[in-house]
Amino acid sequence: MLPGGEDGGKHRGATADEEAAATAASLNDLCATAGDAGGLPALAPFPRAAVWAVAALLAVGLGLGALVLAVVHSAALLVVAVLLSAAVVAFLLWNAAASASGRALRRFVDGLPASSLRSATDDQLVKITGLVACGDISLISSYEKVENCVYTSTLLRKCGRWGSEVANPKNRCSKWKLTHAERFAADFYITDAKSGKRALVKAGHDSRVVPLIDENLLVTTSGNTELSSTLRCWLDERNIPSEECQLIRLEEGYIAEGMRLSVIGILSKKDGDLMILPPPEPISTGCVFLSFLLPTYFDGIVLRLVDRSYFMHNSGVS
């Protein structure tokens, strides 16, 4: 059974046993990577040891500044140390936020020129942009029941402030904690817009995948909202008590057949078959000096949705 219900996926032209075997071999469960930061399996832009080393140096500078102030009554060194500390802390926080939100990786993907399957060589890191087509396995989204998907993501969040009321359900200042996640991917085909050639993207079977896919906000409730029958049924199917879901928001994203997608991975041309595979080791995005961004790293096939026609900002409240 594929995600989304009893008819949650289709294995074209196969028996039930063959479908189950194909599902186990092709479906990629990414739920473990769905964290509060968006589920991006990206490495931090700087190691923890470096942060502690910088913190120790700043503490020494502040201490020396305070000592000079006490001995010679000159605050110049202390002021310089304070300003330098503030600048370094802001720089580190800026980079940490950019890495956690995926902003740095999105800038890298959007700025990378598109490759051509015709001219690209074997084992080359490529960015292929084109139309998506399902492979042997297709998915259906968990809540909206969108069929013929190659990637689906459904996230349930609860208000992180105990006993609080959300005056404005769309207020981004409210703290929402991720409590349930369903995120799946399967192998699919992409047709290169430059060359017209088609490649198999190995996003299934435990491949490392970095989905840069935004979720639609489908449901937001406040303390006095009566849950819809559709939402109650969805919660009951997952054994989530509906009485505990008075302050929630439900988000869902997907990549459906026919959408335009950019894929970054390693091209394989063995035996005449074109495939895009996860990189064998983490890839650096490099520095972006004008944006004060340090290198961040990604480990897996990157999926960046180009066709955002399905995306509705701040969609319905239920």
Rank of each mutant, 00 (worst) to 15 (best):
A193P: 03
V126N: 03
T23S: 08
R157D: 02
C134D: 06
Y297F: 14
N171V: 01
P169G: 01
D206A: 11
A256H: 12
H11K: 05
L92N: 06
W234P: 06
R249A: 03
A185S: 12
R161T: 15
E252H: 02
L30T: 03
V210H: 03
L58D: 09
V51I: 14
N28A: 02
A90S: 15
L247P: 09
P113S: 11
V68L: 02
P282M: 10
L57P: 01
K158G: 08
S26C: 09
S195D: 15
G160W: 07
V126T: 08
I255N: 01
D29N: 15
L247I: 14
P282I: 09
R12Q: 09
S74L: 00
G9Q: 11
D236G: 01
C233R: 10
M259L: 02
A42M: 08
G8E: 06
A32P: 02
D17A: 13
S195G: 04
A181V: 04
S318V: 08
L231G: 01
G135H: 11
K10M: 03
E215A: 03
I301A: 07
E252F: 02
D29S: 10
N171F: 05
S99N: 15
I140K: 15
P279H: 06
G5M: 12
W234C: 07
V263E: 13
L93R: 12
W94F: 13
A120E: 04
V88T: 06
E281C: 04
E6Y: 15
L83W: 04
W94T: 15
I266Q: 03
